[in-house]
Amino acid sequence: MTDETKKKLEDKIIGLVKEYAGKKRFKPIDIVKEMEKEFAAEGVSKEDIKGALKEIMDDGKLVYGYAGGSFLALPE
């Protein structure tokens, strides 16, 4: 995965969570499935997406929420 694709992937993930904030709670697995479809042409793997998610969380751009199950949320 190129740095450019990675940046695009990260933006897409954060954008999706932002767009659906308060409407839909994405589990990490939902994101992985969405992004696998979205970035199929770029050859992005499941592991790439998981790695991108980890970096996003480590940077605090998204956080984990919990309500009976875990989901991705915007930091408060």
């Binding site: 308060g22 409407k23 839909k24 709670r25 309500a67 009976g68 199950g69």
Partner: peptide, 13 residues
């Protein structure tokens, strides 16, 4: 409710 909960997952619970 609308702010705190996701309706589909509430139904599924």
């Amino acid at each position: 409710l609308v702010n705190l909960c996701e309706v589909p997952s509430t139904i599924a619970a």
